[in-house]
Simulated scan of single mutants.
Amino acid sequence: MQFVFEKIFVPNNHTFISRQMPLASNRKIHSHKNFEINYITSGKGRRIIGDNVSEFEKGDLVLLGSDLPHCWDLQDYDGNEPPISIVTHFSENIFNSDFFKIPELKQVELLIKEANSGIRFKVKDNKEIHQTLLEMVNANGLEYYIKLLKIFNFLIKIKDREKLSNPTNKLADFTKNIDKINKVYEYVFLNIQEGINLDEASAVLNMAPSSFCRFFKKKTGLTFMEYVKNVRLGIAAKLLAETDKQITEICYESGYNNLANFNLYFKAKMGKTPSKYRKNFRK
């Protein structure tokens, strides 16, 4: 089965990011450095986390550690209620800060260590957790941080939980190339506005461009330029949802140099124009 490496875009002035996402975007097995809280608001199917394969449905709540392969595969979608999850990604280094070393957060620190295996919290469509996660999607600043701590307060109180995976059971071919792929990801994020150059990206791994392109496609399931386009789209969607910047400004900040092309590509991938996408977050 094919594995996909991901780099989650978290802006420099944020430690974590919360989004409502279609479950269809999680159908490939993927991994990322960030920790993840995933709450299913609609839909059901099969969940793969590490070496664990099990069923999920509305209300499913899991916490995933860094570099843990996972995906959600939809089943029985009748087309009426779009399958959606609320996903929070936060830095793998967040708990290395002095703030999280205080005694009051010891239980949170222990919970995060457990997350290396993936944890399913056995709650049944908890409305308070759902509402807090939903509020995090549009929260900012200190309010955002407080709500994340509130979620952790919920999680540490849930005693009925299930360890999902053996953290040591990772495919060698999957793990040995993580550092190489992450070097490419870092290059893309640092240069996305100024412009991405294939020769420069190849040089990051000391490869010829042709060899680099084969390597990247084999390890990620995407061509290098497909990945770059996805990054640009992710940045644009984030800026549209969370800022009041003009669409033209967002176009250039996310690496596009032509507004018409940006609008066409965004609509083709997201199903709506940038302006209509933004309206979803202004209701």
Rank of each mutant, 00 (worst) to 15 (best):
Q2H: 14
F5T: 10
F5S: 12
F5R: 11
F5Y: 15
E6I: 02
E6S: 09
F9A: 02
P11E: 04
S18N: 00
Q20R: 15
Q20I: 15
M21S: 06
M21T: 09
L23Y: 05
A24S: 14
K28D: 10
S31W: 12
S31D: 09
E36V: 10
E36F: 06
I37K: 03
I37R: 01
N38P: 04
N38E: 11
K44R: 15
R46A: 03
G50F: 02
G50C: 02
V53D: 04
S54P: 06
E55L: 12
E55M: 13
E57V: 10
G59V: 08
D60W: 12
L61S: 10
V62R: 06
L63V: 02
L63F: 03
L64M: 13
D67T: 07
D67Y: 12
D67N: 13
C71E: 03
C71H: 05
D73E: 14
Q75S: 13
D76R: 12
G79L: 10
N80A: 10
P83N: 03
T88D: 03
F90W: 08
S91I: 00
E92V: 02
N93A: 03
S97C: 08
F99S: 08
I102Q: 14
I102M: 14
P103E: 05
L105A: 11
L110P: 03
K113N: 15
F121T: 04
V123I: 14
V123E: 10
D125V: 05
D125C: 09
N126K: 01
K127I: 13
Q131A: 12
L133S: 01
M136C: 00
V137L: 02
V137A: 01
N138I: 06
N140C: 08
G141C: 05
G141I: 02
E143K: 06
Y145V: 13
I146C: 04
K150H: 09
F152C: 00
F152G: 00
K157C: 08
K157A: 12
I158W: 04
I158P: 05
D160H: 11
R161F: 04
P167F: 08
T168V: 12
K170A: 10
K170D: 07
A172P: 08
F174P: 04
K176E: 12
K176M: 13
D179G: 11
D179W: 09
Y185T: 07
E186T: 13
Q193E: 15
E194W: 04
I196Y: 11
I196P: 08
N197L: 06
D199E: 14
E200V: 07
A201K: 04
A203C: 05
N206Y: 00
M207R: 10
A208Y: 14
S211R: 10
R214Q: 04
F216T: 05
K217L: 11
K218Y: 07
T220F: 09
T223W: 02
N230G: 14
N230W: 08
R232E: 03
L233E: 05
G234M: 02
E242T: 08
K245G: 02
I247V: 15
I247T: 15
T248N: 12
C251K: 09
Y252C: 00
Y252T: 00
Y256K: 09
Y256P: 03
N257G: 06
L264T: 06
K269C: 07
K269M: 12
S275D: 09
K279Q: 14
N280A: 12
N280V: 05
R282T: 15
R282D: 13
K283Q: 11
